[in-house]
Design a protein around this nucleic acid. Structure first.
Length: 282
DNA sequence: GGCGCATGCTCAG
DNA sequence: TGAGCCTGCGCCC
């Protein structure tokens, strides 16, 4: 489930297993072989995530930039590495000769796996909006973009230049929790509404980091819809609208709808999130 | 066991 | 706008 919380957990796990250790790097699949050779047998300093991007930092200004895309996986575990299964793009191994427990990690199916310098990393990060999981994030940067954009808020929330780390699930859920029509132009939102949505994303994504999965039903928010949802009616479901097209809304019973917006399936409740009408009419 | 779709993004055209 | 990435899951035999 690669939204921002997944990458945050992944970075923590890589740091916990490998930071401060000399690791061997290889590319059983071959596609990352030349780069892997450059970091093989060097010190892994730390791993960090920004939005959906992962950076594994090695000594000598070498960062492995990873983007999992839709179905990439970076499986990190304790133990001695076994024969690679499937297309392993990058394998990291700490063999335990440093007297810490052996560990290894296999990266598969990623959309990006490349070596870069800090300068190149900086250029990439400059293209990202604030990440709700980073304590230094400045939501007013995102608001500045949203405020002057006529694009639908449902599209803006998914745009990594506006907000980093929000994916299709958090988009659908945060819009529902704040009763915002996904097709509403960004410029029509009040600042207070957007600020509340931001703080809700901070809470939802931090909860996702803690749980290891997205659960928007059990995160309370003042002034939002959540507090009035009868818990039993959600029937253990951890989300309100995501992938629930055709089913009854947990709050009002209306049929949850779906529609493709900028190439992705959008889900919303037409009664809880009524169609926005501008003052000019239309 | 096979099929289609999916929490994402880039690049060709 | 569509293909590519080439994994994993749920669903249907």
């Amino acid at each position: 489930m690669p939204e921002g919380h997944t990458l945050f957990r992944l970075a923590s796990s890589i740091s916990a297993h490998f930071a401060g250790r000399v690791v061997s790097a290889s590319s059983p699949q071959g596609r990352f072989a030349e780069s892997a050779a450059l970091i093989d047998g060097t010190l892994l300093e730390t791993a960090e995530s920004y939005g959906k991007h992962l950076f594994v930092d090695f000594e000598g200004d070498r960062q492995v930039h990873v983007h999992l895309g839709l179905y990439g996986k970076f499986a990190v575990q304790d133990g001695v590495a076994e024969d690679p299964r499937g297309q392993v793009r990058l394998r990291l191994v700490a063999d335990g000769s440093d007297e810490r427990p052996p560990a290894y990690g296999d990266l598969r199916g990623a959309t990006a796996c490349e070596l870069m310098t800090r300068d190149q990393q900086r250029l990439l990060l400059d293209r990202l909006g604030p990440d709700p999981l980073r304590p230094d994030a400045d939501w007013t940067r995102a608001w500045a973009t949203v405020h002057r954009s006529r694009a639908p808020i449902g599209a803006l929330l998914m745009d990594q230049k506006v907000l980093a780390g929000v994916g299709n699930v958090y988009r659908a859920e945060v819009l529902f929790r704040h009763r915002v029509d996904p097709l509403r132009p960004g410029s029509s939102l009040r600042q207070g509404t957007f600020e509340q949505m931001w703080h809700d994303l901070v809470a939802l994504m931090a909860d996702g980091v803690r749980r290891g999965r997205i659960d928007t039903v059990h995160v309370p928010v003042e002034e939002a819809l959540v507090g009035r949802v009868p818990q039993a009616d959600t029937d253990g479901h951890p989300v309100y609208v995501y992938r629930r097209a055709g089913e009854a809304c947990f709050v009002c019973g209306s049929t949850v709808r779906t529609e493709v917006l900028v190439g992705r399936n959008l889900f919303w409740c037409p009664r809880c999130q009524p169609r926005f009408r501008s003052r000019a009419g239309r």
